[in-house]
Design a protein around this nucleic acid. Structure first.
Length: 295
DNA sequence: AGACGTACCTGACCGC
DNA sequence: TGCGGTCAGGTACGTC
């Protein structure tokens, strides 16, 4: 589920709860997510203060007081829930909680809750991940740049480092189609299956076009298209934070209107032609596009 | 190096 | 109602 805009929304939602807070209690329902949690994970986090929360690609980064970074990737289905300490939902969970967790009424309330965190300010966080493709890691001070998950990441698409020149240099000689090229986190960090389709539509470029055939003009359109769709989605995430997340406490998913994604057979944005959006499969994953508009 | 397929995990949905 | 197949927004890793 979560691509850059969703992760950015999660970070913004977690910030008021985690930044400048101390992790008073941490517990795990299991020793691993997608990968084993690092040795001594709970002991390490417990008692540490979060200095800042940020994002790199699809990774959530929490910088701790002594310089270590707590890294979280949401995978496909990872989400955080912020529990109101004494709300109705909390009482309900207390009543139905089957597994032992924190004492004092805070527990692994849902089936796929894997990590519980309570801050010194009384905020309670649950990390839930049905498919368990998410993972967490710790990077010692000064090792973030060489961390195995982050070292190879391409530029942030909303930063000045993401340029047509960068895309052209990376695309040179490549036969892989633009769809696959943009999904590669080494090329640009944070795009996933949805926003690649959306960005290519926005740029009016075919997902089938070999990356090596990008022209300067097309690369410039692509940079603008990527930025446009991500900025719009982050904006939508902001609304969901205000409207939806505050009520439910759930962070990780929001409704967004897409131009082509999931719209097979429907007219693409602003179009009235009779053909509609097409779905094709590239490297085993769905791509949605308009063959009339995207060349 | 780069392109490709497969693995990981659970749940929802569809047709029979 | 049950059952098997397919699909789902992620990354890592093996092979050619």
């Amino acid at each position: 589920m979560p691509e850059l805009p969703e992760v950015e929304t999660v970070v913004r939602g977690l910030r008021p709860v985690l930044e400048k807070a101390r992790l008073a209690r941490v517990s795990l329902a299991r020793p691993d997510l997608r990968f084993p949690l690092p040795e001594g994970f709970v002991q390490y986090l417990t008692g540490r203060k979060v200095k800042t929360l940020s994002r790199r690609g699809k990774y959530i980064l929490a910088t701790l007081d002594e310089g270590t970074t707590w890294i979280t990737h949401l995978g496909m289905s990872g989400r955080f829930t912020i529990d109101a300490p004494d709300g109705e939902a909390a009482a309900e969970r207390r009543a139905s909680a089957g597994q032992a967790g924190h004492e004092g009424g805070f527990a692994f309330a849902d089936k796929h809750d894997h990590v519980l965190i309570e801050t010194d300010k009384g905020a309670r966080l649950r990390f839930n991940d049905v498919r368990r493709f998410g993972f967490m890691d710790l990077a010692a001070p000064g090792t973030l740049d060489t961390n195995r998950h982050l070292a190879e990441l391409g530029p942030e698409p909303l930063s000045r480092a993401f340029t047509a020149e960068h895309l052209l240099a990376e695309a040179k000689g490549r036969t892989a189609p633009l769809k696959t090229f943009l999904l590669d986190q080494k090329i640009v960090a944070g795009l996933g299956n949805i926003y690649v389709s959306e960005a290519l539509f926005s740029a009016r470029l075919s997902p089938l076009k070999p990356a090596g055939e990008l022209t300067k003009v097309a690369a410039e359109r692509l940079v603008r298209g990527v930025r446009r769709v991500l900025e719009a989605a982050i904006e939508a995430g902001g609304s969901s934070l205000r409207d939806y997340v505050q009520a439910s406490g759930e962070l990780g998913y929001f409704q967004h209107q897409f131009a082509v994604y999931g719209k097979e057979g429907e007219p693409c944005e602003g179009c009235r032609c009779e053909f509609g959006v097409e779905r094709i499969v590239q490297s085993g994953r769905s791509t949605y596009w308009c063959p009339r508009k995207q060349k």
